[in-house]
Design a protein around this nucleic acid. Sequence first.
DNA 1: CTTTGTGCAAACACTTTGCAAGTCC
DNA 2: GGACTTGCAAAGTGTTTGCACAAAG
Lengths: 149, 149
Amino acid sequence: MTHDDFAFIKLLQSRGLRVTPQRLQVLDAVCEGEGHTSAGEVLARAREANPAIDQSTVYRTLELLCKLGVVAANLSAEGITVYELVGERPHHHLVCTTCGREYEIPDQAVQTLMEAIQGLYGFTVTTHHLMLEGLCQACLTSEESQVEP
Amino acid sequence: MTHDDFAFIKLLQSRGLRVTPQRLQVLDAVCEGEGHTSAGEVLARAREANPAIDQSTVYRTLELLCKLGVVAANLSAEGITVYELVGERPHHHLVCTTCGREYEIPDQAVQTLMEAIQGLYGFTVTTHHLMLEGLCQACLTSEESQVEP
DNA sequence: CTTTGTGCAAACACTTTGCAAGTCC
DNA sequence: GGACTTGCAAAGTGTTTGCACAAAG
């Protein structure tokens, strides 16, 4: 997924925020990443464009992007915060623990679970993004076909 | 939920591991916590019994307890690792973001989701414990009844 | 020119590690 | 006694903060 610099610039301006090269570089860096990107990866990627950019700028900018609703923050299974562009539709991710690939799944299946929880327990789930770990089909079949050592 | 010191001692012995006061204290500390307990809380609680116990001992013991299958580690929404005693049945947690209370829900509803994911995407989810954030019924009604400031 | 944002450096919280001394069996 | 554990202290992550200088509007 790619983003729209122009829309982002207008968004910043509409809030009275400054348009700086660093902000554009951080947003670019998040976009370059497929799926979820850690702050460290964003920093590394942003430094390709601007070697002088500081980690604190990256963290502050990511926080800003979250507040603006441009990116979303989530916890990875290792406990570090990962970021991704906010798309049009809500969705969730399946992360393969073997190959590391990420698969997007639509919200509807999960929505059913959330509604069931609401109905049964009167609990309104506000977690809008799940990252489920597991084994993807490709890794599963290749694992079955070989004898474990 | 409480635990069985005797069973734990036998488990340690059966593996050729030493039974030390620290190990019992850490297990006690995990048990004293309702629901999920962070390593820091375990340390604090264990120090009530043994002020000299070290943080590294707590971390090492928690790791051991996980390996033995006595406790399970999970990530909290804030990204810190939390521990809980392994109960008989698989279950999941609803954590209220307002009052902090935790509610246990049985595995079956969630299991349906996992099976649906398996069927639709061929992805085998290995995440066996979910912590969903949200608003519990009590907090929801008290929030509705008062005007937001 | 004023306000906002950046880089720098230091501090932070949580967790892990190496090693000598202590403890369990 | 010998192997396993602990405490201590230090280092390692990932993240946050205070502040002077730089840059945007």
